[in-house]
Design a binder for these strands. Structure first.
Lengths: 222, 222
DNA sequence: CTTACATTCCAACAATCATTAGATTGTTTT
DNA sequence: AAAACAATCTAATGATTGTTGGAATGTAAG
């Protein structure tokens, strides 16, 4: 059949992307890269894996063309090939959460499940943040905040949170977010804040989820 | 690090879906199942592969919970677990097309690339079909049309097209669509119609692409 | 009950993939 | 030029996957 000779290469090409998404390590790399450019060293450290292994996985992602890289001196900086790649990660995770009960169980068990803000309140949250009724804090590292953050969010990296508590108003609700539903930074921040008497909640979204919902992001001007 | 013991299972679960998307055969199965329920036999025939192999791939898809099945007599009917799975396939294919030049080349070479209607005209097309200015034909098998089709589309399966040419008005533009960008039915239909003096064009969309664009579908009442 | 048939299970093989260790390539610093 | 360092390449391993053939299961029809 002549059709097969035309069709097979098409599905094979798409499967290249599928193969890139077939490893938990590579998915974690994608999620990190969705926060901004990183070096191999940074990524390997974040995943707690060998540098060579991180390099090999990045090579696989680059072969599927969903990550790109540039060299800057001794370092090579990796990034996602486009915003559509971050969206794909969000969609893939959504499908997994919808259909895999095991994932929902694991998510629930993750951080003792503090009160979490869900999807429906995004616009309301934005309005409250705009009016100053609540304070939204981004607890990721500063460079990730600079790359892109939620509108009206203030950068307060988890590592500095305890030392900079004085910056937070005691009389307002605080909403913390980080890299997304799989990231525990915001959970930790909420625990710490709650222990210190603040009213704090976690927002499930990271910047990719926020953008996937069609809402705008902000970035630090340079 | 205690974080790893929590995080690893999360990415592993999502990677289950990724693994399911890592094979060209399984992707083709997903696209077919997006058109409606099928038996193993039908799927194996469509892919021109062994029945056992089709069964094995379906088992892999079922293990990732993105397809489900039911038994009816001697047959087992497979279906997608939800509309989000078809959407994921569309997004995955879009990312592949955006970032893989090889796929764009293969797509272009596929059917001699007849004049193809692109994304931006969807609403306009719908309006023209509604007003009767053009005729939209669904050249997929009848049962797929019954499951879901574009609004105002008329079923005219490719296999019956030649015999039923009289049903088409000679003075109107005809737009043919099939299972999506990877399907050649509409290309073949356009070739045949053009050869017979009709003004015919292909619509790239299938029902999943149409739905992913946020537009409504219709289905045959039973 | 036997036969026919759709599908799955099991075993085997080759091919591919993840991971690790050691050697190598570029680039910067001294 | 030499030393230091980031990253990749090569080779080897064990594990996983795709595919095929043969046997087994479940259901419907004779």
């Amino acid at each position: 059949m002549t059709t097969r000779t035309f069709k097979d290469p098409l599905y094979e090409q798409v499967a290249r992307i599928g193969k890139a998404l077939a490893s938990p390590r590579r998915l974690e790399l994608l999620e990190l890269l969705a926060q901004g450019e990183k070096t191999v060293e940074m990524l390997a450290a974040a995943l707690a894996i060998d540098l060579k292994l991180a390099s090999a996985h990045l090579k696989a992602l680059a072969a599927a063309r969903i990550v790109a890289s540039r060299r800057d001196g001794k370092y090579r900086w990796y990034r996602l090939s486009g915003p559509d790649v971050a969206q794909l990660w969000v969609r893939l995770r959504d499908v997994a959460e919808t259909h895999l009960a095991e994932l929902r169980v694991a998510l629930h068990a993750m951080a003792g499940a503090p009160e979490t803000l869900v999807a429906t309140v995004r616009e309301a949250l934005l309005a409250q943040a705009r009016s100053g009724a609540i304070v939204v804090i981004d607890v990721r590292p500063r460079d990730e905040y600079d790359t892109a953050h939620l509108p009206f969010a203030r950068s307060l990296p988890l590592a500095e949170l305890e030392a900079r508590l004085a910056e937070l108003p005691a009389d307002k609700d605080i909403v913390a977010y980080c890299r997304g539903p799989f990231c525990v930074f915001a959970d930790t921040a909420v625990q710490l804040l709650t222990a210190r008497g603040y009213r704090a909640r976690k927002l499930r979204d990271g910047v990719s989820e926020w953008q996937a919902a069609g809402l705008p992001l902000a970035m630090t001007a340079r």
